[in-house]
């Protein structure tokens, strides 16, 4: 469902991604691991359509459609979801209002009428339990004053409500204690099904104990240095990234 071919991306004239090839089929969960600055978040942001990234070569196709031609909202409406590494605080916009606006934007795109208020409420309540989120968070402004764990949980909650066909999780585990990590992983696992694809980006192997991937890729210095099964994650845990001759921090420095 997601095909990335020979993707080259620059940020402010520095090449961060240097030819990525990746194919993810429906039902598959892929993990991308790599040291800081290897280009992991750049890949997530390019898939979601954030400004400031220039694709100089290659393409990304989503169900055969050219993803790079679409603006971010169209990608979301087509069924793509990015769980942000740093969820943004939006004072004055209530979480529930925001979610409903998002659900209805997607429905409008599909030519469907706005969601029925009762149906929406039922869905929200069911999904809140999935990530053990407190109802009071619905009335609060989006992510405002949320703890790190609450923010990440809110991302998974949004994903559970929006039910995308393909989701990118950008370091959703960073900053989470083990209990919060389990909650987030349970939420993701509950959404896994034969039609839905996931790309899980992480720095640590730990998350992959809970979200067990079908494929693991090691991203180093803008290239996929190695691909393998879930056992590759364990190998990395034991040996680190030193084998891959990394140039640490390059993408991070360019993006800063």
């Amino acid at each position: 469902m997601l095909e990335i071919r020979n993707l080259h991306v620059t940020v402010e004239d520095r090449e961060i991604l240097k030819g990525i090839d990746l194919i993810i089929r429906p039902g598959e969960t892929h993990a991308i691991m790599g040291p800081n600055g290897s280009g992991k978040s750049t890949l997530a942001n390019v898939i979601a359509g954030r400004e400031g990234y220039t694709v100089t070569e290659g393409e990304i196709r989503f169900d055969g459609k050219n993803l790079l031609d679409m603006d971010p909202e169209t990608r979301a409406c087509e069924g793509l979801f990015l769980a942000f590494q740093y969820p943004v605080e939006i004072p004055g916009v209530a979480n529930l209002y925001f979610l409903k606006a998002a659900v209805n934007a997607v429905r409008k795109y599909r030519g469907e009428p706005p969601v029925d208020a009762m149906d929406f409420w039922d869905l929200v309540h069911e999904r809140m339990e999935l990530v053990k989120m407190d109802e009071s968070m619905l009335k609060r402004s989006v992510n405002e004053g949320f703890s790190g764990g609450e923010k990440k949980r809110n991302e998974v909650f949004q994903m559970a409500v929006l039910q995308p066909r393909f989701a990118v999780l950008d370091e959703t585990d960073s900053g989470l204690d083990i209990d919060a990590l389990k909650v987030v992983a349970d939420g993701v696992n509950a959404l896994r099904n034969p039609e839905r694809g996931f790309l899980v980006i992480t720095h640590y192997q730990r998350l992959l104990d809970y979200i067990v991937p079908d494929h693991v890729h090691v991203l180093v210095n803008g290239k996929i240095a190695r691909s393998g099964g879930k056992e590759l994650a364990l190998e990395l845990e034991a040996q680190g990234y030193a084998l891959y001759n990394e140039e640490p921090g390059r993408a991070r420095r360019a993006a800063a």
Binding site: D71, A76, V88, F98, A102, A105
Partner: peptide
């Protein structure tokens, strides 16, 4: 914030208006 809203499917003009 604008990108965050758009990444959830909300069109750019509506995202700006919301903010």
């Amino acid at each position: 914030a604008e990108f965050y809203l758009r990444a959830r499917g909300i069109p750019a003009t509506q995202a700006r208006a919301l903010l």
